[in-house]
């Protein structure tokens, strides 16, 4: 058990049961572009079909690493951790001001779902393939929620709260910085690998950080400050 105010340097890796994720059919409809209740019947049926096959999706994984350093060496454009500078940009850095430290996380919805997408595409069942692809993305997002709540529970025992999660490729943080993030995990962690061009395999994977500290707070994403007009977080937040 950690003493209050101190957390051991830890790496956790979990196999996640799909039934432990809160995946909503409505979120899939929204991700497909439909407003509540406006999706055609056949789309709703396809979503139901995908959900009926959930039990075969058995390779969802997620994990995190906490490298405890207090205080976090925060700069205007990023932070240092174990001598590595994470150039997150000002938006994310400003959301870490109350954090004492960060947790790195990786999650994946696995290969099974992507294999299904491929098979359905090959048999010319394009719509089903696309809906499965969207379901795969949603599983990855929900697995992030799951790992986020694990991190939250973990640090709470020491009296800390957490920030929102931030990923390279968002909020002005260069996607190539994933290489630094991966350097904090053992090879093949959660069966995820990173290519030279900073692409994670399996495709339905997410990497990121979550800050924590005595006074850390979850703030809305700072879309008003960001220059990426095509970003989907912006669209999500209005």
């Amino acid at each position: 058990m950690e003493k209050s105010g101190k957390i051991e340097n830890t790496v956790y890796q979990h196999s996640i049961d799909i039934n432990d994720l809160i995946i909503k059919k409505e979120s899939i409809q929204t991700a497909l572009g439909y407003k509540a209740g406006s999706a055609p019947d056949y789309v709703i049926k396809e979503i139901d079909h995908a959900f009926s096959e959930f039990n075969s999706i058995n390779d969802i994984r997620g994990g995190f690493r906490i490298v405890y350093e207090n205080p976090l060496s925060l700069k205007e454009n990023g932070f240092y951790l174990s001598d590595v500078f994470f150039h997150t940009g000002a938006i994310i850095a400003s959301n870490l001001t109350e954090s004492d430290c960060v947790a790195f996380f990786l999650v994946t919805a696995g290969e099974v779902i992507s294999k299904k997408v491929k098979e359905y595409n090959q048999s010319h069942n394009y719509m089903r393939a696309y809906i499965y692809d969207t379901v795969g993305s949603e599983i990855a997002e929900c697995a992030c929620d799951f790992i986020q709540s694990m991190i939250e529970k973990k640090v709470k025992t020491s009296g800390f709260s957490i920030t929102n999660r931030y990923s390279p490729g968002y909020c002005g943080w260069d996607v190539r910085e994933q290489h630094k993030l991966f350097s904090f995990f053992p090879d093949n962690f959660c069966h995820i690998t990173l290519t030279k061009s900073a692409l994670m395999i399996p495709i339905k994977s997410v990497s990121g950080i979550i800050g924590f500290g005595k006074k850390a707070v979850k703030r809305n994403y700072g879309c008003a400050l960001c220059t990426m007009t095509s970003c989907y977080k912006r669209r999500k937040s209005g």
């Binding site: 572009g33 055609p40 789309v43 394009y126 719509m127």
Partner: peptide
């Protein structure tokens, strides 16, 4: 025009195939 979304485009594509 965002009147239909990818699934509808894809079933049309299937009919086209």
């Amino acid at each position: 025009r965002n009147e239909v979304f990818v699934p509808q485009l894809l079933i049309a594509a299937k009919a086209m195939t």
